[in-house]
Design a protein around this nucleic acid. Structure first.
Lengths: 257, 257
DNA sequence: TTAGCTTAGTGTCATTTATACACTAAGAAA
DNA sequence: TTTCTTAGTGTATAAATGACACTAAGCTAA
């Protein structure tokens, strides 16, 4: 951010971090907090956590570093999903002031490599971050106009997530260690944006072998307490990069037959 | 290639082009043909068609342009699949001489954005290409050590292809307009690297609706002539970006249940 | 203490899909 | 006319899918 590191002026990374809290899928954004004397124009846009890569730094490393610097989040598994490189992506009027305040070479064309990740928003503490940024969770339905082409990057990531969740058991990354099947179903519904049949959902998840029932039950809830389950990480690791059929009924949007 | 264009020294594109001919899946490579007086060291490596992007050029445009310049191929649908940015990817001894002969700034770190595409190798004419390169089809089992990290990029693309072909009807891009179901099956076997059951394969493809039988049959073959089929492009376009279940039996590598 | 509220949890049936498997058909060549 | 080669076809079993409605458990408030 400060420009005194050895930055590559042409390549950046941006992180699309999804979290789940209060029954909602949320996006991690940076609120710019430049203290400008003249005006507050540069403060109008939130942005994905992202920054230029360093010259001697791998892209994956860069994504991890930038995320940590801007949000305090550490040990997050980030997966690259696309590069965005339209020449104008960094030339819009709305972004000029911010770029000038923050970049050594604000005119440079920047190609960005986008990463995405899923984390348990309820369990993670957002640190105040660097002097010029503050991290916040925004429900995905309330994401405002963002800096640069970040809305496009976010939409791309969300589509990716919708498809991928039906091919890889990744939803669990958004939940705490222990969860109920209803919570898991709520999560899937929040991501897919449609309702699912409870019995079919349970059958599918249980038969997949990726959920392990625990002895424990909910306590102190004003209804029948639900059983807790755990993600079967071992089975997930055995999977390697293979796909699994986690397709759920009614998914006209992403699967046809 | 010549360096007199307005190139971005830090960002390149590379194209992984798959073709199908003589019952084999092939990769399109560039054979470097620098005429160096001193030694032929720089000629040892073949490479994916790729080059630096221009400053005012979109990444997709760049991929198309570079591919055309190096191979003569035009109107190819290229799909971005990953960015590769290890700082050392362009710093290996084996690549030094080539870089020095071809780049204004041979020391610069280069991040590359990789594209892949499927074309009918039998139908396309490879032009001689630029002065320093010649395009050749190499069967995927015979791909030699390539420049930079191009072997890694190729492997990544091949894995992508194996998975994607079971989710999107993209195999047809590799075949001529008219094809027989046996040809289509051979193609799938070449990509997946395993044999498939004829009856199940046919049933799956026919039921998918992506193949349309034509009136025509093979002629002059020394056995029962096969019926020709055509790809249902209309149905493909209706599909948008949705996935289809084209999973074939025995695919332990990429699907589990 | 009990009636009511809320969410958890369960099973079946009809349909579709997956997989394994072996013979006949057509044409050319010898 | 026989032989060779590849095309083309059907069935039976098992598994997965999708639609659908009631009971169970615990808390709360009357």
């Amino acid at each position: 951010m400060t420009g005194n590191k050895n930055q590559n002026p042409h390549v950046s990374v941006d992180c699309v971090i999804f979290g789940y809290a209060e029954q909602q899928l949320k996006l991690l954004l940076i609120r710019r907090t430049l203290q400008l004397a003249k005006q507050d124009a540069s403060d109008r846009f939130m942005a994905l956590p992202g920054d230029l890569v360093l010259e001697d730094e791998d892209l994956n490393q860069a994504a991890k570093r930038v995320l940590k610097e801007l949000t305090g989040l550490d040990n997050v598994f980030l997966e690259q999903f696309a590069a965005f490189g339209a020449p104008e992506r960094v030339k819009k009027e709305k972004d000029k002031q911010w770029l000038q305040s923050v970049r050594e070479n604000p005119e440079a064309r920047v190609i960005t490599v986008a990463y995405f990740s899923l984390i348990d928003a309820a369990a993670c503490m957002l640190l105040p971050g660097s002097f010029s940024a503050q991290a916040v969770w925004i429900p995905i339905r309330e994401v405002p106009e963002l800096a640069f082409d970040h809305n496009e990057i976010f939409e791309h990531a969300l589509n990716q997530l919708k498809r991928k969740i039906q091919l890889r058991p990744i939803g669990f990354e958004l939940l705490p260690e222990k969860f109920t099947l209803s919570e898991l179903q709520n999560l899937y519904e929040a991501i897919l944006g449609r309702e699912l049949d409870k019995r079919n959902f349970r059958r599918k998840m249980l038969r997949s072998g990726f959920v392990i029932p625990l002895e424990e039950k909910q306590q102190g809830v004003a209804n029948k307490p639900a059983q807790f389950y755990q993600f079967n990480r071992q089975k997930y690791e055995e999977l390697g990069e293979a796909y699994v059929n986690l397709r759920l009924e009614g998914d006209d949007d992403y699967f046809l037959n």
